[in-house]
Design a binder for these strands. Structure first.
Lengths: 234, 234
DNA sequence: CCAATAGTGTCTTTCAGACACTATATA
DNA sequence: TATATAGTGTCTGAAAGACACTATTGG
């Protein structure tokens, strides 16, 4: 059989699913929506939906993020995660889903829209354990969480969880929440401030964390952290 | 518009494309096939083809590897790379392609089959520069090469380029070919033999590289290399 | 005052990088 | 013999981990 004549194959549906992560209350949280339509109506799931015929994959991911969560106005990080296409993962038809990973700063409650009957943040640990998400979304979420954990080791991506201006202590709490470990504040400070172009001081200070006023920083131009921040084995 | 009724969307084609890499003559090589059918008939391209209706994505990748290259009998590494789905990347229809990365030991000339009118190994550097592959395959190849370069830093994946039994020097030549740099043989030896469970001596020796007989090793159980092998900046 | 967080400095250990030296094969 | 590759040891500098100490806020 020649695959050059594509018309002999039944159609595939192509969707995007979003793993949207943030840090709230010292904990890694993921965004889930309550499905307003079948299949899995009423169950919690990752935001996502079908890609339109003339739409790029990343554009579809950005559109779904806006439609289903209203988080589109913010400076968020969006990258492709992986693609899931097991036969039978969607009861309607053969669907291949391209998953995207979104990292966002802590935000007010998301505004559900589109097909979502509700939207909420939930601890990633909780979603990984007990609760059952629709489709194969529990597995997709797990891969997104692991990607985020691995990537903040050697990149400046952790700052994507922070507001535009942040302190060294706030950045450290991001690492602690994502990895679930405690880091030494003094060694962390030495590491991030000693890496050239990683953090740029804005000149301002804040006491929003209590204690002595802390310098405010913006992300610098350095995208990679070399040598990497080492994740304790725990 | 509700995406819950998938039938209102025109069909997508879903394909797999393979970035198959090996090390030949101290150089990173990629496998390309000459297309036997339109579009891009006669041009060089990555092996790949349409996913069948009831076939998983990874299964499709393994099948195409066997059909188009005959490399299926070997112990190769296969992992998902990324998904490419820009509208217009295939002139026939909207096609989303899931790319897979295959790392294989050096092999005799591949046996073309299926739709391939020819198959050959080409230096990855050469393919990255001048020659134009069909579709967006030049870009897919570049992402595969970069993935391989990054991953051998912190994993035992470089051994996937070696035969089952190999010497420390042979493993070092893999790193040198993939990264395009020279490594100090003595420091490399200390690093890889000092990492627990990374290499397991088989007891045998070989002189196939000339010089003093070298111990033969198999891959150990350690999948990760911690701390990582540092890639010189060059 | 105390408690909390920010920030600096110092010591030790680990490890990469450079490289001297020895070992054992083939030509 | 010369030459190639394998393998060990030693020194140095960079950087992580542990942790003492000071600084500056608010209660």
């Amino acid at each position: 059989m020649s695959p050059s004549d594509a018309s002999e194959f039944p159609p595939f549906g192509v969707t995007v699913d979003l793993v949207v992560l943030t840090v709230r209350d010292h904990t890694l949280n993921a965004l889930t929506i309550r499905r307003g339509e079948p299949p899995f109506q009423g169950q919690w799931a990752l935001p996502g939906g079908f890609v339109r015929p003339d739409e790029g994959l990343e554009a579809a991911a950005a559109r779904e993020l806006a439609e289903e969560t209203g988080l589109d106005q913010l400076p968020v990080h969006l990258e492709q995660l992986a693609t899931f296409g097991d036969p039978g993962r969607d009861p309607r038809m053969r669907v291949v889903s391209v998953a995207y990973l979104v990292l966002a700063p802590d935000l007010p409650a998301p505004r559900p829209g589109g097909d979502a009957a509700g939207a909420r943040w939930t601890s990633a640990a909780e979603l990984g354990d007990g609760s059952r998400l629709a489709f194969d979304h529990t597995r997709i979420l797990a891969e997104g969480v692991e990607r985020a954990r691995a990537k903040i080791e050697y990149s400046s991506l952790a700052a994507a969880f922070c507001p535009e201006e942040f302190t060294v202590g706030e950045l450290r709490r991001v690492y602690e929440a994502v990895w679930g470990v405690a880091l030494d504040p003094r060694n962390f400070h030495r590491k991030v401030t000693g890496t050239p172009d990683f953090l740029v001081p804005t000149g301002g200070t804040t006491t929003r964390q209590g204690g002595r006023p802390a310098q405010l920083f913006r992300r610098g131009s350095a995208e990679k952290l070399n040598p990497p921040m080492l994740r304790p084995e725990a």
